[in-house]
């Protein structure tokens, strides 16, 4: 991921496109933020979004570099191009933030999300749920005589599609991790 070496806040060649094309179209962007893994850092990022009125569609965070004390936050957000540029610039000025990458701009990227779905039912519905799970390459991670817990990984819309199919078959509960994303290639 060579793009990771771009310096924070540099020039028009940087991740901060200082000459954006302003339009009113709402865009969906996936932003990866490398942060110092320290107490309160997530609150800083979330506080920025709530304080300035930006959207968060999904947000995931975990430590990715134990020795460097770095965590990676992946945020899916929507906004006009001007708002997206502001989000990146505002993230960049948080002192604990090391790097900001707009994977939607720097892409192509791959996005994956993990979900667990509890489906309760018996008879034909139970058989149908299992068959659909197979088609979607979902795994059964827990089973009782009248329920399954499926584990499924994929792009968010694949999970949406699977959840929609499970709903009439007895979908009782769903837990989603939110999106993790990486740029394609080296």
């Amino acid at each position: 991921m060579s793009a990771l070496h771009i310096k924070k806040g540099a020039t028009r060649h940087s991740a901060y496109n200082l000459r954006p094309n302003f339009s009113d179209v709402q865009e969906r962007h996936t932003i990866a933020v490398l942060v110092e893994n320290e107490p309160g850092v997530l609150a800083r990022v979330i506080g920025l979004f709530s304080g300035r009125g930006y959207n968060i569609e999904s947000l995931t965070v975990a430590e990715v570099d134990h020795t460097g004390h770095l965590s990676r936050i992946t945020i899916v957000t929507t906004g006009t191009p001007q708002v997206i540029e502001q989000i990146k610039a505002q993230l960049g000025r948080i002192v604990s933030v090391h790097e900001v990458h707009d994977l939607t701009v720097e892409g192509p990227s791959v996005e994956r999300e993990l979900a667990m779905l509890k489906v309760v039912g018996d008879g034909e519905k139970r058989v149908e749920a299992l068959r659909l799970a197979d088609i979607f390459r979902a795994n059964v991670v827990d089973s009782t005589l009248n329920s399954f817990v499926f584990e499924i990984t994929g792009a968010p819309d694949k999970i949406d599609a699977f959840a929609d199919l499970m709903r009439p078959l007895g979908l009782a509960e769903i837990a989603r991790t939110g999106v993790a994303a990486l740029l394609r290639g080296d």
């Binding site: 028009r12 200082l18 540029e85």
Partner: peptide, 17 residues
């Protein structure tokens, strides 16, 4: 000196951080 100031309110033609 703050990139977030640029294009926050007014779109500019020559941005210098």
């Amino acid at each position: 000196i703050d990139p977030s100031s640029i294009n926050k309110v007014i779109r500019v033609d020559i941005p210098i951080v």
